[in-house]
Design a protein around this nucleic acid. Structure first.
Lengths: 152, 152
DNA sequence: ATGTTCAGATCGATCGCGTCCACGGACTGT
DNA sequence: ACAGTCCGTGGACGCGATCGATCTGAACAT
C-alpha cells in the first residue's frame, strides 16, 4: 500500500468505471501493472465494491430518515442486528457509543412507509424505543475525502 | 424509465464495473442499446456517479462520527452550509426536521482529529451547539435496496 | 564487491469489448 | 394508410483487457 495505490484508490473513488488504460496513464504505470494492483486491493478487502450512485427519488425512495434505537437492557445485540439486517429499507447501520445503541439510515418511498417501518422496529424483540429524525433534504452524501496519508 | 432501466440500475448498484456486454446479456438487449440507455440515465441525473467503496480504516479514516448541529436563531443556513461544504471530513450532510438543523456524518483518523473537527464546527459562524455520537463500528453502510417499483 | 533471489514492472500478442453507423420494425397522430 | 419518430439490432473497426515471458532493481548473504 504505497502512494501509487492511494492514487489509484482516489481515482476509483471519483470514477469507478475508469479503464485500466486510463488509470495507468494517470498514475504513470503500464496497464497490466495497475490491473494487478487493483486486483490485490480488491482481494485484500481495501476495495469493497464498485457501486453506481443513484438519485434516490428516481427509484421511488424519496424519504430519508435517521433512526436511533435504544435497546432493552436484556437484549441480545446480535439478534437485534440480525433483525435489522433483514429489513431492506435500512441502508446503513452504526453501532454507537451512548444510550442509543444503534443509528440507522433508512430510505422509503412515502411517509406512510416510514410509519410502517418505525412500527416494525418498535415491535422488534430487544428494541426498547426509537427516535426518528426525517431528512428534509440531502445536501450531499458519501462525498469521498482526499486521501493524504494522515499525520503519523 | 421502464423495467429494463430499473434492471440496469440494480445491476450497476451491485457492480458498477460491469461491462456493457455483460449488462446486455443480463437484461436481454444488445450492447449498443444498453450503452445508450446508460448514457441517458447518466445525463438525466439518475446515475450520479460510479464510486469504488473503500474500507475506511485502510486509508487512515478509522473514526466515524455523527454530529448534530443546532443553528443560532439568526443564522443564515446557506452560509452555514457553505462552511460545512469546505470541511472535507464531512462526508454526508442532511438538513433535518427538528431542533437540530443538520446531521453530519464525518470520518477522521483519530479521536484527536475528531476533537479538532468539533471545535472547528462550534466556532463556525451560525452554529449554536453540536452534539456528537461516535460509531463504535459500522455494521453496514449504503447497502443498496432492491428496486421494486413501489405501490402507486 | 559479487552473486542470488524475489518482487514488481514492461513488452508483445491475442481476444473480447466499446462505440459508431446504417438499417429496420413498431407505435403515434393525422 | 402514411409519414414521422423512437428505439433496437447487426456489422465493423479500433482500443482495451489480460496473459505469459522477460527484464530491472533492491535486499541480502557470502
Amino acid at each position: 500500500m504505497d502512494a501509487i495505490d492511494l492514487n489509484i484508490i482516489e481515482l476509483l473513488r471519483g470514477n469507478a468505471r475508469l479503464s485500466y488504460a486510463e488509470l495507468a496513464r494517470q498514475v504513470g504505470l503500464s496497464a497490466p501493472a495497475v490491473h494487478e494492483r487493483v486486483g490485490k486491493l480488491e482481494s485484500s478487502g481495501v476495495i469493497r465494491a464498485y457501486r453506481a450512485e443513484i438519485e434516490p427519488e428516481s427509484i421511488g425512495l424519496g424519504v430519508t430518515a435517521l433512526i436511533e434505537i435504544i435497546e432493552e437492557s436484556a437484549a441480545d445485540t446480535d439478534d437485534v442486528l440480525e433483525s435489522f439486517r433483514a429489513i431492506p429499507e435500512i441502508e446503513s447501520c452504526y453501532f454507537m457509543a451512548g444510550v442509543e445503541s444503534f443509528l440507522l439510515k433508512a430510505r422509503v418511498g412515502t411517509i406512510g412507509e416510514l410509519e410502517a417501518l418505525i412500527v416494525r422496529l418498535n415491535r422488534t424483540p430487544g428494541v426498547a424505543s426509537t427516535r426518528t429524525g426525517i431528512a428534509l433534504s440531502t445536501k450531499w452524501e458519501n462525498r469521498p475525502q482526499p486521501v493524504g496519508t494522515p499525520p503519523a
